[in-house]
Amino acid sequence: MSALKRIAQRWACFAVAVALWELATRQAGDRFFPPPSTIAQTAGTLWFSPAFFDHIAPGVGRMLLGWALAAAIGVALGILLGRSRPAMAYLGAVFTFMRSIPPPLLVPFFVASVGITTMQLPTIVFGTVWPVLLNTVDGARSVDATKVDTARAFRLSRTQWTLGVVLPSAAPKIFAGLRLSLSIALILMVVAELVGSVNGIGNQLVRAQRDYELPAMWAWIVLLGVLGYLFNTLLLAFERRALAWQPRHSLEARSSATGG
């Protein structure tokens, strides 16, 4: 099949779906479901207004900072603990329990204890650190016996061993964890801003809902989708680069990419 035909096939359905959506919403005239053309128009003016610096940038900045902190903590701890059998025998259940707490439930606790203006960052760090940590541990464990023997035979130093053997071996799992926690970070950003915040996309979403500004609300929802897609694509591109030595992307890595 020609490349052109493939592209046509790929986008034809999408175009038809958008056209149908436009037609149906125009026909129905339901104020809750504005036509996509109206949403696009509103999005164009909203996203590139002062709201970008007032709401989009601060919220997204907090999210990325929290995620990066959680990633650093999770990878460092995971590499340290993952190679120690006794450490994980004691701590494995603790980490799994911590990860099992539905992340949005952290919001009320942090709102009450840290305060509504500063609770976003700790919420995101606490909510996203566990998947990274557990995946890193899993990856660090998966260093195969031959590599362990090879490293011992060459009398590698502790640093060489950790950075040169354990970290690369664990990398595919680490990336799977990072992607999972990135989607959790986005969810937590929204939940935290919905429940209480002075700015942010979630905050604007609530405002639009209270003011019954439906096109604006849809525009913010679309923006969150765009951001989710963008971050995941960027991380994937980076992962492909970093893991270029890998024979192929395993099913495992792909299936973990689907957070809610």
Binding site: R10, W11, I187, V190, L194, L214, V222, T258
Partner: peptide, 29 residues
């Protein structure tokens, strides 16, 4: 595969929208 190629763009568009972002809309409707 043809069904998949045809619908994947829509799926890729819907999937990244965090479900919590839909809470206000769902509450209204």
């Amino acid at each position: 595969p043809p069904v998949r190629r045809a619908t994947m763009t829509i799926v890729e568009f819907l999937r990244p929208i965090p479900s919590v972002a839909l809470i206000p809309l769902a509450l209204l409707t």
